[in-house]
């Protein structure tokens, strides 16, 4: 049993998946990523490997919800009371984490419930926080999200939409911030997920096993090397890991300064109309992704190329398949809009 994590940068190929995950760390407002793919395509490995790259943040000392001491608007009730009462709210360094939500989790474990021990011993109602509390300001990872119970999906949707978890159950009434990056993985062979849940994901990627024999060999080689001596293997990738972590930090700083040419907004709207997507979430996500891509590349201005790449990540799961037709995302339609734009 080893406690080390397989290095993110050592994952062979799967560029889209890696990019989508990194973009979400840079900009948690993107709305997470849904990773679809067959078994054994490093989906879970990649998500767990993120832990190493996650940026440092400041959390309020003694707070159950990792409140940001510098963001008064997003404090939990406890932190706000302390602040209003004039107590100092002190921060302490922490690291963003990956919180896992097991498919078997019950609703009360997810949203939180009555603190049994306290109720029996003291006769007082107290809220016992659940997984959504841990997930605030972190990454919430649901493996096999398509197998999740319907009613757990409902509460997850509720929280994801609002950034707040409101609990009204088993005698307790409580509300706390629950802003998280939702990362889900699924194997489509085992069933689909509800369109409404899919829509909550900012990005989606489909992963496939590598087809190049050489690449496949490389995958196995690295895996074997890692299992033989995890520490030595990890050291080999340390430089690359640090470089990527640095790039992420820089991009996070650059993010608020990115400049978005106005015509690209119009271009995005046209793409959304041509593709007949539901509602406006698609447009918003494409733009935000393009901005994040520019930041990741170290640029201060969004280019049409950023937009094209953003469309590739943000639109596929908002498309509908038509019978007797191949392909999900009609690239010709998107290209036509881009061409018209250039003209």
């Amino acid at each position: 049993m080893t406690t080390s994590i397989y290095p993110f940068t050592a994952i062979v190929g799967q560029e889209d998946m890696k990019l989508a995950l990194v973009l979400n760390i840079i900009n948690p407002a993107l709305g997470g990523v849904l990773i679809k793919g067959e078994k054994g395509t490093a989906k879970s490995t990649a998500v767990r490997a993120l832990a190493d790259l996650l940026p440092a943040m400041e959390v309020t000392a003694g707070c159950r919800f990792q409140c940001d001491p510098h963001s008064p608007a997003n404090l939990c009730a406890g932190c706000r009371d302390r602040r209003n009462a004039g107590h100092a709210v002190t921060g302490k360094p922490a690291k963003m984490r990956v919180i896992e939500l097991p498919v078997s989790a019950t609703e009360d474990r997810v949203v939180g419930t009555l603190d049994i021990e306290h109720a029996i011993k003291e006769g007082e109602k107290r809220f016992e926080p659940g997984i959504l509390a841990d997930a605030n300001r972190n990454i919430l990872y649901v493996d096999e999200i398509n197998l999740l119970d319907d009613h757990v999906v409902d509460v997850l949707l509720d929280a994801a939409a609002m950034g707040v978890n409101t609990v009204e159950r088993e005698g307790v009434s409580y509300s706390h911030p629950a802003k998280f990056v939702l990362v889900g993985t699924m194997n489509p062979e085992e069933g689909d997920i509800r369109p409404q849940l899919v829509d909550r994901f900012g990005l989606s990627v489909t992963v496939k096993g590598e087809h190049e024999p050489q690449q496949r060999v490389e995958v196995i080689k690295r895996r074997l090397a890692y299992e033989q001596d995890p520490e030595r293997f990890t050291v080999q990738y340390e430089a690359e890991q640090q470089q990527l972590a640095g790039q992420i930090t820089q991009a996070r700083q650059l993010l608020p300064k990115i400049n978005l040419p106005d015509d690209l907004l119009l271009l995005t709207a046209k793409v959304a109309i041509v593709l007949e997507v539901d509602g406006h979430r698609a447009d918003i996500t494409v733009i935000k992704t393009a901005i994040t891509l520019a930041a990741f590349a170290g640029r201060t201005t969004v280019t049409p190329e950023d937009l094209r790449q953003a469309a590739r990540l943000a639109l596929p799961h908002r498309m509908r398949r038509r019978p007797f037709e191949e392909g999900v995302l009609d690239w010709d339609k998107i290209e036509a809009v881009f061409t018209e734009h250039r003209a």
């Binding site: 907004l265 119009l266 995005t268 109309i273 406006h280 447009d283 918003i284």
Partner: peptide, 21 residues
């Protein structure tokens, strides 16, 4: 229902970005 005019759609995104910033 969602809006169908590109200009209107763009304006929606513009406002949301400004708000979130």
């Amino acid at each position: 229902a969602g809006e169908h005019d590109p200009g209107v759609r763009a304006e929606i995104v513009r406002r949301i970005l400004a708000y979130e910033r």
